[in-house]
């Protein structure tokens, strides 16, 4: 915690950069997990699931 505070949170510049960098990974994580949840709820209904029957 101390190291994080002194290296990132103490200066506004590094704090802002840290926020933006983590927003990038946060977005990626949210997108991937929400897609996974959507796919698991709609299992068997999407084209990629039934594609095999028609090819």
């Amino acid at each position: 915690m101390k190291v994080i505070y002194n290296s990132l949170f103490k200066r506004t510049s590094t704090y802002a950069v840290a926020i933006m960098a983590s927003a990038f990974f946060f977005e990626r994580a949210i997108d991937v997990t929400s897609n996974l949840i959507f796919d698991s709820i709609n299992k068997g209904k999407q084209w990629k699931d039934i594609k095999g029957k028609y090819e």
Partner: peptide, 9 residues
């Protein structure tokens, strides 16, 4: 520092 780190987090 530890407590500030928590707030800033």
């Amino acid at each position: 520092e530890e407590r500030k780190a928590f707030s800033y987090l």
